[in-house]
Design a protein around this nucleic acid. Structure first.
Lengths: 325, 325
DNA sequence: CTGAAAGCGCTAACAA
DNA sequence: TTGTTAGCGCTTTCAG
């Protein structure tokens, strides 16, 4: 790979001048500029970003820690984060923590060592103090760690209300809520809170189940759903905390011969693209993945640039009614 | 952030000694080693990987260019690539090309500038010469560019055969193959070739459709499938080149009242995790995403280490029969 | 308008 | 066993 020195030698100037045209800063004659640019073209010169990072103390890299890119929701968010990062001249280092505390810690150290300019945390299984000691621009997705670290979430409470009210409106008499793990301190817990409040107010029979801590295990969902129906054969409505779980519920309904939406109504969560492929279409609460990704990148960059940012960033959700209700 | 100098000062030695314990190379007394390590602990020292990269001329970063992480197949492959990269001490820089030639070029330049040690190309819309000029360890997924660049693919021909034979065995009289775009020079084209060969040999009526070039557009699939059924109402078997497309076919069958598998049999491709959530379960050809990811990382690292690697790496596929056939 | 020189944080001969 | 020194590729004062 050609270096700045090679260009300088070829043109017969010093690296200083080449650096000047590279950064378009300081005085350089038009002719020199031309000649340098030509030489760069010819040698197919690519500035070494590692060297630049070292001296500038800025890598233009954003670290992203999420549980699992292959989960559709995180896949979509990641796509948009990458898109907006790139659009703003940043690169994305991807880390899948699998909701593992140790892994998360290791990744954070790795990212610090790699001199990333900021970290977007979509997985947060560690303790508060572990985060406050990071000393790097950060934004979390769906978890409020302290009131100094900005977070982005969609309106989980509203989502929970929409889902629960819809099931009630549609006439469900006994409703189950299958929530993610409630011990992770996620803001997604607000979906559960909304469910509880609404359903208690209306005095409707209900149960709540939660998934395990260990990531996204389809087999576990299958178990969970199957035993739920066995224990509570009279359930006629389910509010699932993800479209994946909702799909699992739907599948179990097929298996045990319950027809949807007649005998059973289902509402999912997330609004992943794949939801529209399933029949009957799963009614869902759509999270604005694109806006989440966009805002995550914006908040990180603004912090990198030293600006103050809003700590609380709650984006609207939308009820999408399909055939499962 | 503490630097090596800070540690040296604190312990009262030079950076050389600190570097020695950091890299565990050369002679250092046990006591000095201890003291240095303690100082590192105390100051929470993280070596600056950017500086190390600069001098070692090795970044320990692998670049990954794929069309779209949010596509389930690529999401799964990405997950495993990240897993094995991390396991081997490499980081992953993620790039979504959206099958855009210009974007792909820009990403390659970006990755070269970032001094990545190698590139895994899961998107390849450029011309052969653009790849040969990269001069960096590379491996491609599902495309053979030259006989010097190693590639990984699953046994597409076999997959095509398995799918087609199954549909025939199940009694289909007119079979459609919905393929990805055939102009991308992908090895996935072999699925089409196998389909053609098998079905022509057996003298069975058939049609072939292909998707557009522009990425993965669910609406386009919907259009395509819908008009296919309108023009050929007598189709009773579909071999789709992805599970997503297969799901779309299934959805259309529900819409127009064709029952699956009685009136219509469907085989998908990829074997994504989500396939098992759909009812009826979609019969599919499973690609070994984990092995693909593992091998991609292995081949890149072996090249980085200067080893020779096999150029042709074809992994086995597996037929998974579910209820759609 | 251009160059000389220092230095980013770290590694690695070569000396001592 | 430890230190001196040069240098990775680049940016940036400060001179000229």
């Amino acid at each position: 790979m050609a270096t700045i020195k090679d260009i300088a030698d070829k043109v017969g100037v010093t690296v200083t001048s080449v650096s000047r045209v590279l950064n378009n800063r300081g005085y350089i004659s038009e002719t020199l500029k031309k000649r340098v640019q030509e030489a760069m073209e010819e040698l197919n010169y690519q500035p070494n970003e590692v060297a630049r990072s070292l001296i500038r103390k800025k890598s233009n890299i954003i670290g992203l820690i999420i549980p699992d890119v292959s989960h559709p929701f995180f896949g979509e968010v990641t796509k948009y984060i990458e898109y907006y990062a790139d659009k703003n001249g940043y690169k994305l280092l991807l880390c899948n923590s699998k909701l593992n505390k140790l892994k998360e810690k290791e990744y954070i150290n790795m990212l610090k060592g790699s001199q990333v300019d900021g970290i977007i945390m979509g997985s947060h299984t560690m303790d508060t103090k572990d985060y406050t000691s990071i000393k790097l621009p950060m934004v979390t997705l769906d978890r409020q760690i302290t009131d100094t670290i900005p977070y982005i979430s969609s309106d989980n409470y509203k989502g929970g209300e929409l889902a629960t009210n819809l099931l009630i409106k549609k006439g469900c008499k006994k409703i189950a809520h299958i929530s993610g793990n409630l011990h992770l301190n996620l803001l997604a817990k607000l979906r559960h809170d909304a469910f509880k409040n609404v359903i208690t107010n209306k005095g409707i029979e209900h149960i709540v189940l939660q998934t395990e801590l260990n990531g996204f295990n389809y087999d576990e969902y299958e178990q969970l759903v199957s035993s739920m129906f066995q224990e509570h054969p009279d359930i006629d409505g389910v509010f699932a905390s993800s479209d994946i779980i909702a799909a699992q519920v739907l599948k179990e309904c097929y298996r045990i011969g319950k027809s949807v939406p007649q005998d059973m109504k289902i509402v999912g969560y997330d609004g992943i693209q794949l939801g529209q492929l399933i029949t009957p279409g799963i009614t869902t609460i759509k999270q604005p993945t694109k806006e989440i990704g966009k805002m995550a990148v914006r908040l990180i960059i603004e912090q990198i640039e030293g600006q103050d940012v809003l700590k609380e960033n709650i984006l609207p959700v939308k009820l999408i009614e399909r055939q499962s209700t």
